[in-house]
Design a binder for these strands. Structure first.
Lengths: 233, 233
DNA sequence: AGCCAATATTAGGCATACCTAATATTACAT
DNA sequence: ATGTAATATTAGGTATGCCTAATATTGGCT
């Protein structure tokens, strides 16, 4: 049986761990107190206090350097990835089985992810056929494993005129998700960025359409793209 | 839109409300501090403190009488019945959709009942076809309504020789549920109590079986029965 | 090097929900 | 009516997780 996270964590601790994982990104950069406070919607003294507490625990979930930021330990990463897996499985389950729309699933998954058992996780995964992708195109980590990284970049950095496929979209803003759906900007969709203006607005041509659509910089910021998958790969 | 409970309650408060509802029974008897402490697994000073706090809230969830016990107010009953509905819907959902066995569902439902949204509740009810009964034979209250009472009595009080049908079984002991299943003592099953001995053990004949089975008093305590439903009713 | 705004920490506090120890009340038996 | 065991409350405490106010530190600009 693969070794798994055995520490009991509270909801708040879980939220900190996930936030550190997400803010730290692929390189697991140190995450600042201010960034965490912003992400979690709480004050910086509260963040400092919690990080100091977490750093003192044994085994420790974080490595905390005063004024310099925080990183997850191996144990912290395991729990954080477990929560990400729970979250993404729940999102897919809410969408495919309970027929939620894709802009409704995030909030409910954010709440439930802390409370489901391993049994529940396994049953949901079994019913969904051990899926690899959630409704927003995010990779669902394998059980007991860290997430994998994909060659996806923000739409804002994709070269003009070069074909791309939408890899994933952020699940954090329900309003943004509704607008993305309305415009047809969903995972798997092929597109080409034709123009960007000074304000960051994008002119984008979708698939076989001839008329480009206008996408605001805020909305573009929610989209990650990748090179199209060729038939040979 | 039916008026619903608008107070935000914590998990602990929810647990108190449900415990008071269940211990108070059909007549909504006053529930003692000691009974609540036993049911919730905490000390009596903690119960006293919480009941005093709940009684002071506006609108109040309980009516508390020092040394005499506690009852739910209308608002307290509404929230308590809502949790019962959540619990029973979740149990059926875990059983029918996620393929949990009937002895596994209680613990998971006990945890999740606090956190599901109204949306989740509605989707689950829709998928299950607005069911009326949970896997243990308990009535699932209608949304926004109190539970209904049925003419069911403990097996220990059913007259000898009189045909009965199992109405519901307690969901609190997983071991008891496994034993009940092994013996075939499940909701809907017809039976006749042939004999009781001084220790409370029952000799029971099931359905068309000719050989009676032996049921301990503890196990019998988990079973509620009713007169068989005739073809005319 | 010095200034200053932003970031971050420290100190003290509040609310929630439980604990133990000490004390008060109740109800039952005699 | 009295005694006593069980029930229940009061008083003070701990842990968790957030808050504000005051203070310290950092990094960028001049």
């Amino acid at each position: 049986m693969p070794k798994q996270s055995t520490l009991a964590t509270t909801e708040s601790v879980d939220d900190y761990l996930k936030a550190i994982l997400e803010l730290g990104g692929a390189e697991a950069s140190q995450v600042t107190t201010n960034a965490l406070a912003g992400r979690l919607g709480i004050r910086t003294p509260s963040v400092t206090g919690m990080l100091q507490k977490l750093a003192l625990q044994r085994p420790s979930l974080v490595v905390y350097e005063k004024h310099r930021g925080v990183r997850l330990t191996a144990a912290g990463k395991r729990r954080a990835w477990e929560l990400v897996r729970h979250h993404r499985l729940l999102e897919l389950f809410l969408h495919d089985v309970l027929k939620y729309s894709w802009d409704e699933v995030h909030e409910e998954a954010e709440r439930l992810e802390h409370f489901i058992s391993e049994r529940f996780e396994d049953r949901v995964a079994a019913i969904l056929g051990d899926p690899e992708i959630d409704p927003h195109g995010h990779v669902i980590p394998q059980k007991y494993e860290a997430g994998v990284l994909r060659d996806e970049v923000p739409l804002a950095r994709w070269p003009l005129g070069t074909p791309a496929t939408i890899s994933s979209v952020s699940d954090r803003s329900a309003a943004a998700l509704r607008e993305l759906e309305r415009l047809g900007l969903m995972p798997g969709v092929a597109l080409t960025v034709e123009r960007r203006n000074a304000a960051g607005s994008h002119s984008i041509r979708l698939g076989a359409h001839t008329e480009p659509i206008r996408v605001s910089s805020d909305l573009a910021a929610c989209v990650l793209v990748a090179a199209p998958v060729t038939a040979l790969s």
